[in-house]
Design a protein around this nucleic acid. Structure first.
Length: 714
DNA sequence: AAAAAAT
């Protein structure tokens, strides 16, 4: 459609320039029945704000519980003229690049931006528009925080109806609002390839089971191991599984390596075994100061590559016979795990479950997609259960465990897994993260929950407000712990951990756990056991790494060509604006795509990710908000539109594909100037990837996209 | 640069 042709129907006029006009409600010339831009109008013919339904507008179906997922969006768009739209409409960077329409063409009734994106765009003077407050937050219903019932409802409601509606919604948000006349596109009609719900599906039928009597009782009335107590004291909680602990748990051992660099590739698979020192260490002062010494030295290096932690390499062969039950998990948990598809433990799980049940602090590194959530989630639930054995679950009880993640999406995802486990034994979880109203979260806390999953800011906030009591926390988990130790996260983490009683057990997990966590380990962990999954080599990986060396001017077209494919594709870009721009470009090329980044309101973030999970779109363009931890089934191509700067980022982004043994491809686009830097980064990530020159239309692009017959993934 | 609290 020509860009200057307005779509038929009433909407388009709303995009005419409105220079100098007042906001809609100040527009005296407006008459009943005529609505101004951005407002939905009343549905009642008698209302002065009545506005007839638009021709061709998608029929609005009846709300189902699941439809409410999009309700806040719809509200924001239709009834909040003050502006939730952000990128959906005029605020998308370069939305109208190439369009000769004046940029400031929408007049003062344009939605005002929210605080969050204030800095992401050039400033404009919005005149006397009413200051907006928090309208881009989901209204009234903080659905994502719904911990107890929302999944099942969402999954059970009419899928077809929702699909249609969401397709319609997206058309409204992303197309109908376009000033440049692409309003007729919807992409709900693209064939869905896969309707699988992803990771959390197995939970659907799960009902909490409250029959806990089948598990071993622990007569200890103390709720948790006391960390500063003697070992024997600590062991009293261990129960029947204590037998296996001795051989697998190694004391955390002061690193001996030079902090020259990480071990080289050919050095892997046992690089630390020879250096391991099995001395039990309780009061390891020297060790701790050494952490600091080395870390400080490390930080002075310009190119910060933190040393790998000295770890017990877990050999899959030695543990694969152990079942979850052998590891000490109760019958209900074992059954629930099996229902979730985890019939027998993955190596990282086999390694960590025992020590966690013992009450030890644990550092664990397991590569992306290796099952870390269950590795800490299952024993955490078991421990809390044991500690509460024989006690009533009181109304308003304080939470006993805290699981922290760097992004809200990850917190949500972790909760889906942990909640399933917890509920199977009658424990409750709740999500505490920002971007949604507090009310539901506070309400859940008032009722009493056992396990909190969330992000640092809101947790700290609620604690400061006195609405969250952290004093009874017995176990703290830091997922993506190295990331949580980075600048910007470290201090909140420290503040938070200081609120937790000293004796609480700490578990640090990440695929790239390195000495960057030293600051936290030194202050908060006692004698941690350190694990990694052995043979974590590229050879055993299922990910194919490629690098395309391209001309910058070809980039957009090559990207579009790469993502125009059947499989699910995750595209990483460095900035929020660029993700939006790319999503836009893909849409322009007829490829349904959505963006995910921190400048979207939480409802959109959640929904856009869900769309990829559902297969309603097959292309998601994201910032590094999606780099870590996010699990979407069947992403078989990761495209790095911008190469990462850090090798760890590379590792995590790449890890969005090739999960749980599936195969996947990671392709990174670079320009010639970037080759050297890229080589160095791949070296640090310990990845071999061929560099291939590519131009528009080259076979290599077709091949990576899977459009060639030779590609078996096709 | 992004992420993580709200206001």
């Amino acid at each position: 459609m020509p860009k200057n042709k307005k779509p038929a129907g009433g909407r388009a006029q709303n995009f005419e320039p409105r220079y100098g006009k007042k906001t809609s409600y100040q527009d005296a010339k407006r008459r009943p029945g005529q609505s101004s831009a951005g407002t939905a109008g009343s549905k009642s013919p008698n209302h002065r704000g009545y506005r007839a339904p638009e021709e061709g507008a998608p029929q609005k179906g009846r709300w189902t519980a699941s439809d409410r997922a999009g309700r806040d969006e719809a509200r924001g768009i239709r009834s909040q003229a003050r502006g939730d739209r952000r990128f959906d409409r005029d605020e998308r960077p370069r939305r109208d690049a190439g369009d000769d329409r004046p940029r400031r063409s929408y007049g003062d009734d344009r939605p005002q931006r929210s605080f969050g994106d204030r800095d992401s765009r050039p400033r404009r003077d919005f005149g006397d528009r009413p200051a907006r407050s928090f309208d881009d937050r989901p209204r009234r219903d903080d659905r994502p925080a719904r911990s107890f019932d929302d999944r099942s409802r969402r999954n059970n409601s009419g899928d077809f109806d929702r699909d249609r509606r969401q397709g319609a919604d997206s058309g409204r948000e992303r197309s109908d609002f376009r000033p440049n006349g692409r309003g007729d596109r919807t992409f709900g009609d693209r064939p869905r390839r896969d309707d699988r719900g992803g990771f959390d599906r197995p939970q659907r039928d799960d009902r909490p089971r409250f029959d806990r009597d089948d598990r071993p009782r622990f007569d200890r009335d103390d709720r948790r191991p006391v960390r500063n107590s003697s070992d024997s004291d600590r062991r009293t909680l261990r129960g029947a599984d204590s037998g296996r602990s001795g051989q697998d748990v190694r004391s955390y051992d002061r690193p001996r390596r030079d902090f020259d660099d990480r071990p080289r590739r050919d050095d892997r698979g046992g690089f630390d075994r020879p250096r391991r020192d099995d001395r039990p260490r309780r009061n390891d002062g020297p060790s701790r100061s050494n952490w600091n010494a080395e870390t400080n030295a490390q930080e002075q290096r310009v190119d910060v590559v933190h040393e790998r932690l000295q770890a017990e390499a877990v050999d899959a062969a030695t543990v694969e016979q152990a079942s979850f039950a052998d590891l000490g998990l109760g019958q209900n948990l074992v059954r629930t795990l099996a229902d979730m598809g985890a019939a027998s433990p993955f190596p990282i799980q086999a390694a960590t479950v025992g020590p966690i049940l013992e009450g030890r602090d644990v550092l664990a590194r397991g590569r992306t997609g290796s099952g870390k959530t269950i590795a800490f989630g299952a024993p955490l639930v078991e421990s809390i259960l044991r500690a509460q054995a024989g006690k009533r679950r009181e109304f308003g009880r304080s939470p006993k465990a805290l699981i922290l993640a760097p992004t809200r999406e990850l917190a949500l995802q972790i909760d889906r897994t942990v909640q399933t486990l917890a509920r199977s034994v009658g424990l409750f979880t709740t999500q505490i993260y920002g971007g949604v109203p507090q009310a539901r979260q506070v309400g859940a806390l008032k009722k009493g929950v056992d396990i909190i999953v969330g992000t640092p800011g809101r947790i700290e906030d609620l604690q400061a407000q006195g609405k969250l009591d952290l004093s009874e926390i017995q176990i703290v988990v830091l997922d993506e712990a190295d990331h949580m130790s980075e600048l910007g996260f470290l201090e909140p983490m420290q503040r938070l951990l200081r609120l937790v009683q000293d004796g609480a057990q700490k578990l640090l997990f990440s695929a790239t756990l390195d000495r960057e966590v030293a600051a936290l380990v030194d202050e908060f962990l006692v004698d941690p056991a350190v694990y990694e999954v052995a043979s974590e080599t590229q050879e055993s990986s299922t990910i194919d790494h490629r690098v395309l060396v391209i001309d910058h001017r070809d980039k957009a077209e090559i990207l579009a060509s790469l993502v125009d494919r059947d499989g699910k594709t995750l595209v990483f870009a460095r900035t929020r604006a660029y993700t939006e721009m790319l999503a836009e470009q893909f849409e322009d090329a007829g490829i349904a795509a959505v963006a995910l980044h921190g400048d979207l309101n939480q409802a959109k973030r959640t929904r856009n990710l869900q769309r990829l999970t559902d297969g309603k779109v097959r292309v998601l363009v994201a910032t590094d908000v999606a780099a870590r931890g996010i699990h979407v089934d069947d992403i078989d191509l990761v495209v790095q539109a911008d190469a990462p700067d850090e090798y760890k980022t590379y590792t995590h982004r790449a890890g969005r594909t090739g999960r749980a043994g599936r195969s996947g491809t990671v392709v990174t686009l670079i320009t010639r100037q970037r080759r050297r830097k890229m080589t160095e980064m791949l070296d640090r990530a310990e990845i071999d990837a061929p560099f291939e020159e590519a131009r528009i239309g080259d076979d290599v692009i077709e091949e990576i996209a899977g459009r060639q017959a030779s590609n078996v993934d096709r």
